[in-house]
Simulated assay, not measured.
Amino acid sequence: MSGSYVVTGGGRGIGRAVAERLVAAGGTVVAIEQDPASLAWTKGHPAQGRLIGLAGDAADDRVAERAADAAEAAAPLAGWVNNAAVFRDASVHSSTARRVLELIASNLEVALIGCATAVRRFLAAGSPGAIVNVSSHQARQAVPGALPYVTAKAAIEGMTRALAVEYGPCGIRVNAVAPGSVRTERYADHLAAQGPEAAARIEEQMAAVHPLGRVADAHEVASAITYLLSPEAGFITGATVPVDGGRTVLAHDPEARRYA
Results as ranks from 00 to 15, higher is better:
1 M>N: 08
1 M>L: 09
3 G>P: 08
6 V>R: 02
11 G>D: 03
11 G>S: 03
13 G>W: 02
14 I>Q: 03
14 I>G: 02
15 G>F: 02
18 V>M: 06
18 V>C: 06
21 R>E: 14
21 R>H: 09
21 R>S: 13
21 R>P: 00
23 V>I: 07
23 V>P: 02
25 A>R: 12
26 G>W: 02
28 T>F: 01
30 V>P: 02
30 V>H: 03
32 I>K: 06
32 I>N: 06
37 A>N: 03
38 S>G: 12
39 L>N: 03
40 A>M: 00
40 A>I: 01
44 G>E: 10
45 H>L: 02
48 Q>D: 10
50 R>T: 07
52 I>Y: 05
52 I>P: 02
57 D>E: 11
59 A>Y: 01
60 D>H: 03
64 A>Q: 10
67 A>D: 12
68 A>E: 15
68 A>G: 15
70 A>H: 12
71 A>P: 10
72 E>R: 15
73 A>R: 15
73 A>S: 15
74 A>H: 13
75 A>P: 04
79 G>M: 11
79 G>L: 10
82 N>R: 05
85 A>H: 01
86 V>Y: 05
87 F>H: 11
88 R>Q: 12
92 V>H: 11
92 V>M: 12
92 V>Y: 12
92 V>K: 01
95 S>Q: 13
100 V>M: 10
103 L>H: 05
106 S>I: 00
108 L>E: 08
111 A>T: 13
113 I>H: 11
114 G>K: 07
116 A>G: 06
117 T>G: 08
122 F>A: 03
123 L>F: 02
124 A>K: 10
124 A>I: 07
125 A>D: 13
133 N>T: 10
134 V>I: 13
137 H>K: 10
138 Q>F: 00
138 Q>E: 14
143 V>H: 01
145 G>P: 02
148 P>W: 01
149 Y>W: 01
152 A>E: 07
152 A>K: 04
153 K>T: 10
154 A>F: 02
155 A>T: 14
155 A>F: 08
157 E>R: 12
159 M>A: 15
160 T>V: 13
161 R>Y: 07
163 L>H: 11
168 G>M: 08
172 I>C: 08
172 I>Y: 08
173 R>L: 06
174 V>H: 07
174 V>M: 06
175 N>K: 04
180 G>Q: 05
181 S>E: 13
182 V>A: 04
184 T>Q: 03
190 H>R: 14
191 L>W: 06
192 A>F: 00
194 Q>N: 07
195 G>R: 14
197 E>T: 14
199 A>L: 09
199 A>D: 14
202 I>W: 04
203 E>Y: 00
208 A>E: 13
210 H>R: 07
214 R>E: 09
216 A>L: 13
216 A>S: 15
217 D>E: 15
218 A>Q: 11
220 E>R: 09
223 S>Q: 15
224 A>I: 06
226 T>S: 04
227 Y>N: 11
227 Y>M: 12
231 P>S: 10
234 G>I: 08
235 F>P: 11
238 G>M: 10
240 T>Y: 09
244 D>V: 09
244 D>A: 10
244 D>P: 08
248 T>C: 11
250 L>M: 11
253 D>A: 00
253 D>Y: 00
